[in-house]
Write a protein that binds this DNA or RNA. Sequence first.
DNA 1: CAAGGACAATTCGTATACAATCTTGTAACA
DNA 2: TGTTACAAGATTGTATACGAATTGTCCTTG
Lengths: 222, 222
Amino acid sequence: MRPHLTPPITDGEARTTPLAIAQVLRARIIGGNYAPGEQLVEDRLAKHFGVSRIPVREALRMLEAEGFVELVPYRGAFVAEVDRDSADHTLEIRAGLEPIAARRAAIFRSEDDLEVLRDAQARGDHATAREQYELLPSLNSVFHSALWSASANNELKNLLDQLKFKIAWVYSLNVRKNAKESWQEHKRILDAVEAGDDIAAEQAMRDHIDAAIEIHRRYPRR
Amino acid sequence: MRPHLTPPITDGEARTTPLAIAQVLRARIIGGNYAPGEQLVEDRLAKHFGVSRIPVREALRMLEAEGFVELVPYRGAFVAEVDRDSADHTLEIRAGLEPIAARRAAIFRSEDDLEVLRDAQARGDHATAREQYELLPSLNSVFHSALWSASANNELKNLLDQLKFKIAWVYSLNVRKNAKESWQEHKRILDAVEAGDDIAAEQAMRDHIDAAIEIHRRYPRR
DNA sequence: CAAGGACAATTCGTATACAATCTTGTAACA
DNA sequence: TGTTACAAGATTGTATACGAATTGTCCTTG
């Protein structure tokens, strides 16, 4: 399967070529390999990945929808600029949506959801206690993703899944310093979700996001 | 410009062919011309629009990002199903975002923004008083769009602009009965935005959206 | 008669080729 | 010197053609 280009596209397992290309490009944009505003020339990318321009174009369309590139007709694709303001704006959107997810999760969570949340929480605590900070970003991602799934609102989950990459981009440089507080906040959210207390879950998540934004404001990356 | 296909694509002015096709398809999906779950065969659409499959594919990618179609690799594009739940879920997302926009609008609105808002409000009141209900949906859209612009959060505006179509889809059948109350609520929002009272604006918008959801729940479309 | 496999038909995936458009540099002109 | 016109180069837009995956059908086989 995927006849022409298995070698260059290193991504683990993407069902289609455009998806694989999009993942690589997204990771590079988040990782800062491309300068903001830089043009992504289709032909160059196509040669780089060893494919034709068609799948590259589709990948760029996906990244456009996620806000990582801007597509200008007859001009090309340009890496989006993430200035201080647009970072704030993205976090503000997150602040509007995550509390809703938490509230719903407290109502609709299944036993399986709780399982995953408890597990992520335990691993997070563990890693924090041992100061294995490099593990935290992915554990954090697991915790939040599990909450979105538990919210039983698929549109919301999809939206937050998309935002996730952008938030990762925003946060990319300053990994949150106060890991311990962060996982204490998670604990509070988890407790509320377990108890089925939707109001408390919403409030706990609101506090959690606000704290993250506060930290982000205090230690600006650029 | 747009060499090959000016006649079939009736859209007003879209800069590129895929955009024009996407607009037509979106309108048809919202308008109920395609059954939910129905497959949109690229070849058929291409012939219908008098273009090749390439621009059709790009249009479908856009609609996928907006949640109107589902793209399955090697199977095709299918019109999304909007059941009762997913409609609720979309409205819930809106309920999370619009109050933020209103709060920010109260802080950042320019004199031009206020101009547009006052104008929309006046026209809405006028149309309501004369019972010209057919004018209300577009005026309502103008009012809300102006608020999003005034919020000075471009990411939020883009997101709400996308959601707009889906919300239109959700509401498509039952135009809100109580137009008068709706525009009284707008008035309250506008007053708060004019006064620069961000807390009041946020609360007024929250009430407005909640009322809309309540109506929607009371008069289900399917 | 049910289960499994070969095959055909349909549809998507993408490589190639060429047309349309935009940008930039240059030269003629006021 | 500043401005416009134009041509060349680069890049995107899309039509065509063919390869690949999926699905359904019909045949075989136990």
